[in-house]
């Protein structure tokens, strides 16, 4: 019996899909049997980020409606034998699926896979409710921006209301130089507000843009800083104790500036 993990954020554009693709590829690389579900019906992207768009024949809605069998809708990844994608429908909307149908689907998939990662849409409406319904655990992705942290906080509240406790936090797209200058929220500020366990911090990395456009998860790229961060996140998810990546050397000047609370 596998575990279902939803990747969610509330705010759009913070990196849910990228995170799903990278953790999925990371878990598959570690030898686990993994399925990714794109729950963003009507605005699917995970297939593009995984580079599998041209293989889609059936989708999640086809499976839920009984039009296609699950095994026919699952697309095998081109890099890993043990990684599969269940794409979202693009020509439908969130109302095509109900939370109960998602629970049934995810439960079925957990029989077959070690990990089922669910890529949630932005927002708190039905799409979010569908994505969260079948999940055992949640990963909340937030960027170091006030709006993103505010939305993440709202999401954590909604998760708790649904009895999904102890979500993990992933801080995405942090820019150490800006944090150092005090122009960007730092990790501690975010954890203080959200008060959930930090699973990892992903630095802002231009290589991510390239990798998502090419459909090759950055986690497979040894050169990418973000890829390294996602490798660490994957290992922490598997229970290993990996120290947080050092984002940038602290200078004495930087420490001093922080001490006296100099901002900007």
């Amino acid at each position: 019996m596998g575990e279902a993990i939803v990747i969610t954020s509330g705010k759009g554009g913070v990196g849910k899909t990228t995170t799903t693709a990278n953790i999925g590829a990371g878990l598959a690389q570690a030898g686990h049997k993994v399925a990714l579900i794109d729950a963003d019906i009507g605005l699917r992207n995970l297939d593009v980020v995984m580079g599998l768009e041209n293989r889609i024949v059936y989708d999640l809605v086809d499976v839920v409606e009984g039009f296609a069998k699950l095994k026919h809708a699952l697309i095998k990844d081109k890099r890993f034998e043990n990684l599969y994608l269940l794409p979202a429908a693009q020509t439908r909307d969130k109302t095509a699926v109900s939370p109960q149908q998602m629970i049934d689907l995810v439960d079925r998939m957990k029989q077959e896979f070690d990990y089922v990662l669910i890529d949630s849409p932005a927002g708190i409406e039905q799409g979010f409710k569908n994505a969260v319904a079948g999940a055992d655990r949640a990963l909340v992705v937030a960027t170091p921006e006030v709006a993103s942290v505010r939305d993440a906080d709202r999401i954590i509240g909604l998760l708790e209301a649904q009895e999904k406790h102890n979500p993990f936090l992933i801080i995405n797209r942090i820019r150490p130089s800006m944090v150092k200058k005090g122009d960007m929220m730092d990790i501690d500020d975010m954890i203080e507000i959200l008060a959930i366990e930090l699973l990892g911090v992903v630095p802002d990395d231009e290589a991510i843009v390239v990798s998502t456009n090419r459909g090759e998860p950055a986690v497979l790229n040894g050169q990418s800083r973000a890829g390294e961060a996602y490798r660490n996140i994957t290992r922490r998810l598997l229970g290993e104790n990996i120290p947080m990546m050092k984002l940038e050397e602290d200078t004495l000047f930087g420490k001093l500036r922080k001490m006296i609370g100099f901002k900007g």
Partner: peptide, 14 residues
């Protein structure tokens, strides 16, 4: 992205 004629399916090369 994908072309289908009757039961034949072709996809764009990766």
């Amino acid at each position: 992205t994908q072309l289908r004629i009757a039961q034949f399916i072709g996809r764009a090369p990766d």
